[in-house]
Amino acid sequence: MFTLQPIGTLFIRFVLGIIFFMHGLTKMQNGIENTAGFFTSLGLPGFSAYLVAGIELIGGLLIIIGLGTRIIAVLFAAIMLGAILMVNGSNGFVGGYEFELSLLAMSLFLVFNQAQVFALDNILPFYKSKQQSA
């Protein structure tokens, strides 16, 4: 039976990767020091800005090609949960955290989904055997 779910999953993976890549790139281009200052103003260590930007930038590319999808999606989910709790939660749903919640949901979908089309995860033998046992 033919199903479109793998195509939908590919679309979610691709869009999520582009969004996170662009956010990481923007943090780097606009001066990561500014982001580090913002993180410090939230009570977070400044170096965490570098960590988040790196995960967004590199993780975005990895998600697009489908390498380490579940691991990266967990990291994305953690970043979005942090953004909701630390930054936008007090702003309410509309105009506040609805975007972050959407990215969190997309990330969790990729964590729990097994079907990945056009993904390097499917062709790397060391990773494929780990995914099948999960």
Rank of each mutant, 00 (worst) to 15 (best):
F126Y: 11
S133I: 12
N30E: 14
L75S: 08
M28W: 12
Q132R: 11
F76I: 12
L57R: 02
E100S: 14
L4V: 10
Q131D: 09
H23F: 10
A73S: 15
G96E: 00
L10V: 01
F38V: 07
I32N: 01
N30F: 14
M106N: 01
V117R: 06
S48V: 12
Q132P: 00
G96T: 11
I32P: 01
L124R: 06
N34V: 10
L44Y: 10
L75Y: 01
S129C: 00
I72F: 09
L16K: 05
G37H: 07
G89E: 07
S107A: 15
P45Q: 03
I64V: 12
N88E: 07
Q132H: 09
A53M: 06
L103V: 13
G17R: 06
N122M: 09
V117D: 00
N122E: 15
G54F: 14
N30K: 14
M106H: 04
L10P: 04
S107T: 04
E33N: 12
Y50V: 09
T26L: 04
I32T: 02
I64K: 04
F39T: 05
L67R: 03
G43N: 10
G24P: 10
I63E: 05
F118E: 01
G89W: 04
V74I: 15
V111K: 10
F14T: 15
G24L: 13
F76T: 09
L101G: 02
H23W: 06
I84H: 01
L10S: 02
L10I: 00
M28D: 00
I18P: 00
F47V: 12
N91F: 07
S102C: 11
E56R: 11
R13P: 02
I123N: 13
G68I: 00
A119S: 15
L51H: 02
L51F: 15
A78R: 00
A53R: 04
I7K: 06
Q132Y: 04
A36F: 01
F76C: 02
G92I: 05
T35G: 01
L42W: 07
S41V: 00
F47N: 06
G89V: 08
I12E: 03
F99W: 13
M80N: 12
V111L: 09
L103N: 07
L81E: 04
F93S: 01
L25E: 06
I58A: 14
M106S: 15
S107D: 01
S102R: 04
F2A: 08
A83E: 08
S90P: 01
L61F: 14
G60M: 11
L110W: 07
N113Y: 03
A77K: 04
A105F: 15
F99S: 07
G31I: 12
R13H: 06
G66S: 13
K130Q: 08
A53I: 01
R70M: 06
E33L: 08
N88K: 15
F99R: 06
T35F: 12
G92V: 05
Q5E: 10
L42S: 05
A119Q: 00
D121P: 05
M106P: 03
F118K: 05
G37C: 03
A83I: 03
F20T: 10
F112A: 02
L44T: 10
T3L: 06
S133V: 14
L57I: 08
V117K: 08
S129F: 02
F20V: 11
G31S: 07
G96Q: 04
V74Q: 00
A73Q: 03
K128W: 09
G46F: 00
Q5P: 00
L44E: 08
